[in-house]
């Protein structure tokens, strides 16, 4: 179970409070969606969960299976099964996609006391997952995200998620910039990962994604707070009427 308790977060660079008391309980197997106006703090929340430097938790706690993860480094949180699909995946010239993914997978396996995969074993696993997401293996021979289109970068995030098989997945606007077919492939990819012991937090601006990935709960976030929680029908309401009436 993943739990956010009374979370308050400052961005140290500007010493400004962005997350202002969030509570959220996500049980294994559940899919939660977060919607909210630009600048409401959704990405800030996702960075805080994954342990980025500069996101200072000034109050509250984040717990995985009743244990606080606040003291864990980003890589340890990842190895414990927390995954963030970035809103803006970055390009890293000089780091090969394949060697990066293998290092990531093996680092996590090592952390969890499992044996590391050799290059051949790794490639076999990767090929299958890439195939499901319609990702060309040739593309993966390039440096990390370098020269990838916006949609390709997003699909590459989901590929990493499929490969690393995390327990708690945060998807930050993975649907933005995807064409209709890619949206279906990505949704299928996510749906095929849905299981009783894996949960999702999906940040999106569009109800359409939630047609493909059916959430159990939809939360509306504004000014660093969750101001409303309901079922999937809330996303439809937002799509039709916008946020203004919820904010007042």
């Amino acid at each position: 179970m993943f739990e956010i308790q009374n979370l308050h977060v400052n961005i140290s660079e500007v010493d400004k409070k962005i997350i202002d008391g969030i509570n959220l309980k996500i049980n294994p197997g559940e899919v939660h969606a977060i919607m909210g106006p630009n600048g409401s703090g959704k990405s800030t929340l996702s960075y805080t969960l994954s342990g980025k430097d500069g996101y200072q938790v000034i109050n509250g706690d984040i717990k995985l299976d009743d244990e606080s993860i606040l003291e864990l480094e980003a890589d340890e949180r990842a190895a414990k099964g927390i995954f963030l699909a970035f809103q803006y995946p970055i390009e890293i010239p000089g780091v090969g996609n394949l060697s990066f993914m293998r290092t990531a997978l093996n680092s996590q396996r090592k952390y969890n006391g499992n044996s590391e995969l050799n290059p051949a074993e790794f490639l076999k696993v990767l090929k299958e997952k890439a195939n499901n997401l319609n990702i060309d293996m040739e593309m993966l021979k390039r440096p990390l995200n370098v020269g990838f289109s916006g949609g390709e970068k997003k699909r590459n995030e989901i590929l990493q998620m499929a490969l690393l098989e995390p327990r708690f997945c945060v998807l930050d606007e993975t649907d933005s910039g995807l064409d209709v077919d890619a949206m279906k492939q990505v949704s299928n990819g996510v749906n095929s990962l849905r299981s009783d012991n894996r949960s999702f937090l999906i940040i999106t601006h569009y109800q359409r994604l939630l047609n493909y990935i059916k959430p159990d709960f939809v939360h509306i976030m504004a000014k660093g707070k969750i101001i409303k929680t309901a079922g999937p029908e809330l996303a439809i309401e937002v799509e039709e009427h916008g946020y203004t009436h919820l904010l007042t």
């Binding site: 980025k52 000089g94 990066f100 440096p143």
Partner: peptide, 21 residues
């Protein structure tokens, strides 16, 4: 951070970026 967020420890992430350089 990107590399670490995938489970690669800091030291290893630094190595990868130096190699990339």
């Amino acid at each position: 951070f990107y590399l670490q967020s995938r489970g690669i420890p800091l030291l290893e992430a630094q190595k990868q970026l130096i190699q990339a350089f």
